[in-house]
Design a protein around this nucleic acid. Structure first.
Length: 325
DNA sequence: AATAGTGACAACCGCTGCATA
DNA sequence: ATATGCAGCGGTTGTCACTAT
């Protein structure tokens, strides 16, 4: 009964991924599409567990991932969505298709949490980030705002349920209970994430860490048993360009309809999902870690005036909210 | 120049819900 | 109906880079 174990604990490699491993993984997914992670290590010869492969793909190698600095707009969306959904990073990430849940989570923990803590404590009235904590907020008002958000979400859910989602969002499907980025396989979608690989290889060439170098020959050998990619083009011997050439020649680059790389406006967050059914409870649990919405909204409003798409979500005011539902 | 402290982020761990045998 | 495994999620840790002392 049951299935064989996902992976042997013995002989499973841990730690940072090497470029070779990345290439092997990407090329495999290019060919077979994501999913069936259990078979990935076996079929590719990677000494990684299926879980690790999946994470590497979803958090790093998947096409359409935007890396680096978060824009002001993204930041604000995250803050607002976090206030709405709590620490449900996957749900939040589904509204920022270019960002991974891990990325958002990290950004929240390292940047936004502190930023908001500062804001919350009001230690600096006008700090460099433009926050103003000079206005004290009463608890009642705070709660009211929270209720507003809950109401907003509920209303949005009703709207979403009454609309034809597919016609509204032809490309982007908000959280549906599965990982937002794992879609039915289409060959054209799984283009190489050449940028990510290029960057990775660049760094790798620059630093040439011992561990990588020692792994390099082994991995190259290993991977050559399974795939054509690393065939004679080890970065350490022929350089990034050659490797990338090999990589590019292997993988045809088609932008995944380019829509994935377009940011989703907050209007689209109005098509909130069944997720919202849950967040009332979650909101309770997260109250302690969350920030008074009034200050947030002030900040958000400022942006909303310049970024029209924010207004719809944020401008749903108390006025059309009787405060109960 | 050396060391400690801190920040950023990739990766891992453990839990949960669902699918499958 | 039940046991088991898989995939996904969120929390946490480990490691590297940068900065301050």
């Amino acid at each position: 009964m049951g299935r064989p174990p996902c992976c042997d604990k013995v002989g499973v490699k841990k730690g940072p991924w090497t470029p070779e491993e990345d290439i092997i993984l990407v090329s495999y997914i290019q060919e077979h599409g994501p999913g069936n992670w259990r078979s990935v290590p076996t079929n590719t010869g990677l000494l990684r567990c299926s879980k690790s492969c999946r994470l590497r793909w979803t958090n790093y190698l998947r096409p359409g991932i935007k890396r680096g600095n978060f824009t002001d707009h993204e930041e604000k969306m995250i803050i607002h969505l976090q206030a709405l959904l709590g620490n449900r990073w996957a749900a939040i990430a589904s509204y920022l298709p270019q960002r991974t849940d891990n990325d958002i989570k990290n950004y929240w923990n390292t940047h936004l949490k502190k930023k908001l803590k500062k804001l919350h404590t009001g230690l600096d009235d006008h700090n460099q980030d433009g926050f103003s904590a000079s206005q004290p907020i009463s608890k009642g008002r705070w709660e009211k705002r929270l209720q507003t958000d809950i109401h907003m979400a509920k209303r949005a859910l009703c709207e979403a349920l009454s609309l034809d989602k597919t016609s509204q969002l032809p490309e982007f499907k908000p959280f549906d209970g599965h990982h937002p980025y794992v879609r039915p396989y289409q060959a054209s979608i799984y283009a190489s994430n050449a940028e990510n690989i290029a960057r990775l290889l660049e760094n790798w060439n620059k630093s040439s860490p011992k561990s990588v170098q020692t792994n390099n020959s082994e991995n190259t050998q290993n991977s050559s048993n399974n795939l054509v990619i690393a065939n004679g083009s080890s970065p350490s011997t022929e350089g990034t360009a050659t490797t990338l050439d090999a990589f590019d020649s292997l993988l045809t680059y088609n932008s995944p309809t380019s829509d994935v790389s377009q940011s989703v406006s907050v209007d689209e967050t109005a098509n909130l999902t069944p997720e919202m059914n849950l967040f009332q409870d979650k909101s309770k649990a997260d109250l302690e870690t969350q920030v008074p919405l009034t200050l947030l909204e002030k900040w958000l409003f400022e942006d909303g005036t310049t970024q029209g798409q924010d207004v719809d979500l944020i401008n749903m005011s108390l006025e059309d909210n009787p405060g109960s539902f």
